[in-house]
């Protein structure tokens, strides 16, 4: 456990850049949206809704990919075990997810309190994925970080462990699998049922429940794969 903490600290030796990327890009996206809708908002009474919040999740996904492709060879080269690297990496990432989700939660509250920053802008709170319960609402910000993060880790681990061939195999399996399911769904006329199922899910289920359920196997499989990966 000690060494896992060392890894977590190792990944923060350049902490300004770790924090600056996700928040810098989110801030940029926010400012652009604010400027755009403020200049357009004179006559209409629509509530502008943006997908700008996604940018921070995308940056964290990329950060997780590079934690495996870049930090892993460095840490192993310094003499860290794979287990400690993985635990430390997860530790620092979960820490970031919790902290960032808390900030996003507060920003969403501020957005509500200021009537969408004075121009009815919905940037931090998504209307169609509204979660009422405060704890679930917080988790609704945190768990998607985990899902995307572990997805990035899992993909990067496949690359680290099995190289380009592994990536090609993974893409092929994903393509055939998802494509096959789509064909099957069309053939069996399942689409209305599928859309209905998604519509029936609450915001909490879509943001917290299902992502958490998907994150768990990704985390376990990544751990098993990285244990035999070479830096």
């Amino acid at each position: 456990m000690n060494r896992a903490l060392t890894v977590a600290r190792l990944q923060f030796v350049d902490w300004p850049s770790v924090v600056a990327w996700p928040w810098g890009i989110l801030a940029l996206s926010f400012v652009i949206n604010l400027a755009l809708f403020a200049s357009m908002n004179e006559n209409v009474d629509v509530e502008p809704t943006t997908g700008g919040l996604l940018s921070i999740y995308v940056v964290m996904f990329v950060a997780c990919v590079s934690s495996i492709t870049q930090d892993f060879p460095f840490a192993i080269g310094l003499g860290i075990s794979r287990r400690s690297f993985y635990l430390g990496n997860v530790l620092q990432y979960v820490g970031q997810a919790i902290a960032y989700a808390a900030v996003l939660y507060l920003l969403a509250m501020a957005e509500q309190a200021t009537d969408g920053w004075g121009i009815d802008l919905r940037f931090f709170g998504l209307p169609f994925l509204w979660v009422e319960h405060p704890v679930l609402r917080f988790l609704g910000f945190a768990i998607p970080f985990l899902l995307l993060g572990f997805l990035g880790i899992a993909i990067a681990v496949v690359f680290k462990r099995w190289g380009v061939n592994g990536m090609l195999t993974l893409s092929t399996v994903a393509l055939v699998g998802l494509g096959g399911l789509a064909v099957l769904a069309t053939w069996l006329r399942w689409w209305p049922a599928i859309v209905g199922w998604f519509a029936d899910q609450s915001g909490a289920a879509l943001l917290v429940g299902w992502p958490a359920l998907l994150t768990l196997p990704l985390a376990v499989l990544s751990y098993l794969a990285i244990r035999r990966a070479q830096p």
Binding site: T6, L10, V13, D14, S17, S66, L78
Partner: peptide, 18 residues
């Protein structure tokens, strides 16, 4: 190889940690 964001001083700090 080293992570692309690290400077020389960061690598030393990493060495000290490990």
């Amino acid at each position: 190889t080293y992570p692309s964001n690290l400077r020389v001083s960061h690598v030393l700090r990493a060495g000290g940690l490990v």
